[in-house]
Design a protein around this nucleic acid. Structure first.
Lengths: 238, 238
DNA sequence: TAGTGGTCTAGACCACCGT
DNA sequence: CGGTGGTCTAGACCACTAA
């Protein structure tokens, strides 16, 4: 593991354990460099990670102020799978595999993503249940050119885990789009909607590190169970 | 201006002008360092910015691949104001100032943000109209301890611009939370809802660079006009 | 003025990729 | 193997903050 990543994790846990309290200053970069026995630039790389993840705020001439992490309690922003979310939030939930079949990518999707027509995919449809209610409907399309086989028992668990750990592929980045749309017949059949007229729809295109598109996902959430939290830094608006 | 920022902007515009095409490799870090007459670490800082903004993907031993920026066409993620969004998207829209009064922060907000009860704020309520329809209702609470005066004519324009340019304050970061909630009476009165039962609610806490909280905003969007796009990189899920 | 973070350098070694 | 990006260093100078 990198030095700067180790240092990041070390300081992160110190903040979470409240060894550094909100509002306090971290030791200066020079002090940290001395105490970790690394150069200042290495410390600075660790601090960038803390900064990006909302743990600290830096001020020139002043120092690095520890932020109130309790207040930022749900760092979902970024690229996190349902499984990871579930384990980090200790949600009592269950996944039901509705479908896992091979077919071609829908035309609407191939057109938008500039893929060839009739691209072969695994189509995986899953329901996420919490306390017996079907809250989320996930529809995943995985390119068979990248993922040749997709056993049912993997589809019931985490696709990301299967892709990264079993297949040894590296996930790079994703683009997500959030909208609210009218419910479909399928939503009504599969989800516990209580007569809702709309669902939140999150459409994602997921790419490997080598920039290959390998997955397109449509995730449909019941309105009252949807929440997305984002931590954003101001970038000078030029 | 920084060197690495200049270089970032330079390469960014080269990508947008398609001088570097999607799928191509950028010149190597050593070549870029030579041609810009800077050290390699400085080039790398510029590339980090390109990476974070979804312009390139790096691969060890290979190079920096230019991504298809057209596909990522709506980089709203981050901290961008309505005015900036409007000008970047050339939306034909109008802002109506409904209220600009002094009052105390609602108790529900002070409790959640751990502020003192009866914190004095400017309460600004604004409607965003597109093509004559009221699409968004913004309710801003600005601490008078940070922003003593808030003229109506500034409230009609950009709050961020007033805060940054006129007052000379530096905005640091924000935490945003997205949910979908039932409409209120006020929503029905002020917005053009066509009988919708829900609105998207974006609640933001905005902080200065010195970590002072100075603004709390509730932004209520009509369902069919709401869209949020996020570019996310995979972080090793530990 | 002393200490802080912000930037930049020149060089080093490593891991990974392709030939 | 040579070239790529990934990491790390030791040192320098600057801009900002607080006393």
């Amino acid at each position: 593991m990198n030095k700067f990543n180790e240092i990041y994790l070390d300081i992160e846990s110190a903040i979470l354990n409240q060894q550094y309290q909100a509002g306090e200053l971290l030791p200066s970069e020079n002090e940290l460099a001395k105490s970790y026995n690394v150069s200042r630039e290495t410390i600075r790389k660790a601090l960038v990670l803390l900064l990006e993840n909302g743990y600290i705020q830096k001020k020139q001439g002043k120092g690095s102020i520890v932020l109130d992490v309790q207040r930022f309690n749900f760092p979902v922003s970024g690229l996190t799978s349902y499984q990871e979310l579930k384990s980090s939030q200790h949600i009592n939930s269950k996944t039901i595999l509705v479908k896992n079949i091979r077919q071609t990518m829908p035309d609407a999707v191939t057109k938008q993503l500039q893929l060839p027509k009739d691209t072969a995919v695994h189509f995986v449809e899953r329901l996420r249940q919490v306390n017996g209610e079907s809250i989320i409907l996930d529809k995943d399309y995985l390119l068979t050119s990248v993922i040749p086989d997709l056993p049912d028992k993997e589809a019931e668990n985490s696709l990301f885990q299967y892709i990264e750990q079993t297949l040894g592929l590296s996930i790079g980045y994703a683009q997500k789009e959030f909208t609210v749309e009218p419910v479909t017949k399928e939503d009504k059949q599969l989800m516990s909607l209580h007569g809702d007229t709309h669902v939140v729809v999150v459409r994602s295109s997921v790419y490997l590190e080598d920039t290959t598109l390998f997955q397109y996902t449509e995730s449909r959430h019941r309105l009252d169970k949807f929440k997305f939290v984002d931590f954003a830094r101001r970038r000078s608006p030029m």
